[in-house]
Write a protein that binds this DNA or RNA. Sequence first.
RNA 1: GGGGUUGUAGCUCAGUCGGUUAGAGUGCCAGCCUGUCACGCUGGAAGUCGCGGGUUCGAGCCCCGUCAACCCCGCCA
Length: 659
Amino acid sequence: MQLDHLGDFQRSHRNGELRLGDAGTTVRLLGWVRKVRDLGSLIFLDLRDRWGVVQLRLDTADADPVLLAKVRTLRSEFVIGAEGVVLERESKNPNLPTGDIEVRLSAVRVLNTALTPPIPVEDLEGNEANEDLRLKHRFLDLRRESLQKNLLLRSHAARVIREHFHEHEFIEFETPILTKSTPEGARDYLVPSRVHAGEFFALPQSPQLFKQLLQVSGFERYYQICRCFRDEDLRADRQPEFTQVDVEMSFVRQEDVQGVLEPLMVKLAKLVGKEVATPFPRLAYADAMEWYGSDKPDVRLATKIQDVTPAFAESGFNLFRAAAESGGQRRVRALFFEGEAAGALSRKQLDELGEVAKHLGAGGLPYVKWGKDGLSSSFKKFVEGEAEAALKAALGASGEGLAVFAVGTDAQTSKVLGELRLRLGRQFGLIDESRFAFLWVVDFPLLEWSEEHARFVACHHPFTAPHPDDLALLESDPGRCRAVAYDLVLNGYEVGGGSIRIHDAETQGRMFRALGIGEAEARAKFGFLLDALSYGAPPMGGLALGLDRLAMLLCGETSIREVIAFPKTAQARCLMTDAPSPVDDRQLKELHLLEEKAQTYRVGAVFFESAEGGNPTLRAEAVQHLSQMTPRQASGLVTLDDQGRILDAQTLNGPTFEF
RNA sequence: GGGGUUGUAGCUCAGUCGGUUAGAGUGCCAGCCUGUCACGCUGGAAGUCGCGGGUUCGAGCCCCGUCAACCCCGCCA
């Protein structure tokens, strides 16, 4: 099809901005054909651009035949320039901002055609293709209004963030993407060095150390919106590359950092019409685990986990009584959901919950239900009579409702009840989805024992300051030492995390020792940091926000892929570019990743000698190619293995023969 | 690394107990249509039932393997 040139055609208006007041004006518009509605002697076209949609009209009876023929060829997603007069519509469309007017076509330029899209581009209910197809054709998927809206909102959020930090005199920095691998934390993405055989850069898991060093340099307030990389398995709210809003400040306490972040959250919430009050609630990590079974509780749900161990001290139910007799090693913890809905849960639904509990490591799901037909329970004979009253008192239960129990160590019971709390809360409609519930979880433990590494590892990172009251515990009882670390939680998602840092070399050395990192290793891995801390490092602290998660929650989405233009799949693949992909052996050799076993020969006599034992067909082809080569090409290399077979035969064969 | 869900027309899905020629909606193509805007009406084309193997007289359906997407556990300082 013959395409028109853009030429001198210039847009006079954006499609979404035309109103009744523009009636009578001749306009020039650009965009994509969303839809053609051909009524016979009347043709309507919807023209879409970034800013909206407007209806174009052509009356076939009095139309220029050339224009009519051209318009009849238009299909969805064609790119056109349209010229015409704005007119008030005969029948208006109240669902469209431009619904009062239409543009009567006088000229059209077809700037490009389009194949029939493999996925729907129109953003209708139930019109969404499978995600793998959407990701493969992401450039089309991104034409959809909902994704355009999400990415626009993300852009607005980023702008608000930048403005906020600039208002507060933060300085924006760029830090290296090619940096040093660190022993702690997530797996690194590694980048081989061509110049230094056998050595590697790592992509940053975060700019943590650089932002601290910038404080040592005296910049006092740093921020950056930066990409971070972690080679770990994915989730709906986790990608291998993600964006952090990275913040660091000098001469601050935890409260100062929080004081800068809270008003920013208020502004961001306002972008989507949510009011949030400051200061945000502070919740100690220990309380979060005790009440919500999670270090990122969704506090829109009021239901809390309760300790009911004492209620079973005399019980005939051995499983629970044993826990009561374990001296605190094991406890019986419970969730109680009051109400008819909870009391009416069917046997099947309870079985399903039991499966969930098993999946999370519980043996099963003991429950007690007070419904229409009275009491039912998986351990009914132990909760009848006096025991029932005692249990109700312990749970604070009066009417109908459901109690579910978990028994075991705190870690075990928190995991099970933390998950069931959310699941049942959602099921019973106890969560106000319209709310934004921010809170700070504080007083995280500094270290936790890792069975895998048989040593303590940092809960946050190795540069987190120990709580001043717990400093002595660093050597005596590291597991009980608290950190000055804080997470910002929104609706059950960790949207940020930070800490006050260690700012003196001596404490940093103690921390490394507690982590089992020896003097020599600390020197090799973090020598520059220890040096920096020895030259007058200020007290400092900061935080990093997960911009993807934040954007996701602002957009009301449940996956960060909906707020990332080109996301990866759960298997860390890009379905559009097909990355990662194999690379040429030549690249691998250059990077010293593939051992150079093969011999290389100058083309010429040596080549023919070495090819003696080789494949005759390939050799013939090679000879053919060589005879056609210019001297310059022939001075290149041909690769043979030690049997004289041509390793690079494909290059000799292929259409892109290059030396 | 482990568990679960899904895979049938371009797209979204249905497909009964294993039984004749695998259907619907939508999109696409063609014709008709003067106020549509999820236009309407009529007709048409469109299938590697993810892939490989097995069971069976016979497999979209059952079994084994495998691939991919999604969700979860582990992991993610």
